[in-house]
C-alpha cells in the first residue's frame, strides 16, 4: 500500500495540484493530509473542496493550527498570518469552515501515527525541530512510526532501543528504510509554503509493504501562485517567500 502524505498545503492550489498529480503517477493508493490546508495562499476554497472530495472517497484529513484559526479563530494569530486568516474566513463558506472545524487531531493506522505537530499535546501545536522534540513526541505514542508536518522543513529522526536518537536529512527520491527495531518520526516538508530554501513543493510517500518513506520535491507554477496572492491583496511577503522557499 502506497500512502501519499501531504502537509501544510496552505491554500496553494498550484503546488497541491502538482503534488496530487505526482503522487497519482507514482501509484498512490491512499491519501492523508496532515493539516494546515488553508491560510497564506490564494485558493482556500478550491483546496478545501478538493480535500472534502478526497475525504468522501476515503482519504484522511487532520486539523492544523491554521485550519483551527480559520474555522474557530483559535489559536489567535498575528501579522501576515492574521491578515490572511481574516481574508480566508471570508472566502470560505460555512460548510467549508464546518468541515475544517470537524477535522480530527490525529489518525492512527496500524503502527503509524499521523498528526499535524508534536504528538505530546496536538492542540498545543508545538514544533518538532530537534532530536529532543522528536524524542518527546515519540514518547507520547506507542506507534512505531509518527508522521507530522508544521515545521515546513523535512527531517527524519529515529530512536534505537538503547535510547539513541539519530537525525537524518532525507534525500529527494531516496527511500528511507524504516528499520523495524527503531522508532521513527518523520517531519514532512510543506506542499504550499516550503521554508527549507528549496521552493519546490514537498510531500512524502509511505510504502507499507517495503516499510520505506520517500520524500519528494515537485516543481510547480510558483509565478501563478504568487501572482494570485498579490491579486487577492494578501501581504506581499506571502507571495515573495514562495519564490525562495523561505
Amino acid at each position: 500500500m502506497l500512502i501519499a502524505v501531504m502537509a501544510d498545503i496552505h491554500a496553494n492550489r498550484e503546488a497541491f495540484e502538482a503534488c496530487l498529480s505526482h503522487a497519482r503517477t507514482h501509484g498512490a493508493q491512499r491519501w492523508i493530509f496532515l493539516g494546515d490546508h488553508v491560510n497564506y495562499g490564494a485558493d482556500p476554497e478550491w483546496v478545501v473542496e478538493t480535500i472534502m472530495a478526497y475525504v468522501s472517497r476515503g482519504a484522511v484529513a487532520l486539523l492544523g493550527n491554521h485550519d483551527a484559526a480559520v474555522a474557530e479563530r483559535r489559536p489567535a494569530m498575528d501579522g501576515p498570518a492574521r491578515t490572511a486568516m481574516e481574508w480566508t474566513r471570508v472566502q470560505l463558506g460555512a460548510a467549508h469552515r464546518g468541515f475544517l472545524a470537524g477535522l480530527p487531531l490525529t489518525f492512527q493506522q496500524q503502527d503509524t501515527l499521523f498528526v499535524h505537530a508534536d504528538a505530546t499535546a496536538p492542540r498545543k501545536w508545538n514544533y518538532v525541530t530537534d532530536p529532543y522534540d522528536a524524542a518527546r513526541s515519540l514518547k507520547a505514542t506507542d506507534c512505531r512510526i509518527s508522521i507530522c508536518g508544521h515545521v515546513h522543513k523535512p527531517a527524519t529522526y529515529n530512536l534505537s532501543d538503547t535510547g539513541h536518537m539519530t537525525t537524518f536529512q532525507p534525500i529527494t527520491g531516496a527511500p528511507v528504510p524504516l528499520l523495524r527495531q527503531r522508532r521513527w518520526l518523520a517531519v514532512l516538508g510543506s506542499v504550499g509554503q516550503p521554508r527549507d530554501g528549496n521552493p519546490a513543493a514537498s510531500y512524502a510517500m509511505l510504502d507499507k509493504e517495503r516499510n520505506e518513506l520517500t520524500y519528494f520535491r515537485v516543481p510547480y507554477d510558483i509565478d501563478t501562485a504568487a501572482a494570485k496572492i498579490r491579486e487577492a491583496g494578501l501581504p506581499d511577503v506571502l507571495a515573495e517567500r514562495l519564490r525562495w522557499g523561505q
Binding site: 527524519t156 529515529n158 534505537s160 539513541h164 539519530t166 537524518f168 534525500i171 531516496a174 528511507v176 528504510p177
Partner: peptide, 9 residues
Amino acid sequence: QLPDLMHEQ
C-alpha cells in the same frame, strides 16, 4: 542517502 546509524550512535 541513508541515515548513518554508526556515526550517530
